[in-house]
C-alpha cells in the first residue's frame, strides 16, 4: 500500500482511502483529507518530521506516523 508517508516533497497524489478507525481517522477526514482529495507535500520540518501538506487549498502539518494511515494512488505530476 502506498501511503502519504512515501510521497516525496514537491509531489502530489490522490487520496484513495483513510485506514485506521475512531478519532484518528475521523479527525484526519474532518480536516479535508478524504478519498478523492488531491494532496501535495510542501515540505518537511527541519528534523524531518512532521510534514506540511496542501490539501483543499490550505496548509496542514501532520506527523509521518499519522500520514501512514492515508493511502494514496498514482502520483500526479
Amino acid at each position: 500500500m502506498r501511503t502519504l508517508r512515501n510521497l516525496k516533497i514537491g509531489h502530489s497524489a490522490n487520496v484513495v482511502k483513510i485506514h485506521g478507525e475512531g478519532v484518528l481517522k475521523q479527525r484526519i477526514m474532518d480536516m479535508g483529507i478524504t478519498p478523492g482529495a488531491v494532496i501535495f507535500v510542501r515540505k518537511a520540518a527541519p528534523l524531518g518530521d512532521p510534514i506540511e501538506v496542501t490539501v483543499r487549498g490550505y496548509e496542514l502539518s501532520l506527523r509521518k506516523r499519522d500520514a501512514e494511515i492515508i493511502e494514496i494512488g498514482e502520483e500526479d505530476l
Binding site: V23, E59, L60, S61, L62, R63
Partner: peptide, 10 residues
C-alpha cells in the same frame, strides 16, 4: 490514551 492525530495549522 486513544491515539489522536497531531494536526497543526501554520
Amino acid at each position: 490514551s486513544t491515539p489522536s492525530p497531531f494536526v497543526l495549522e501554520l
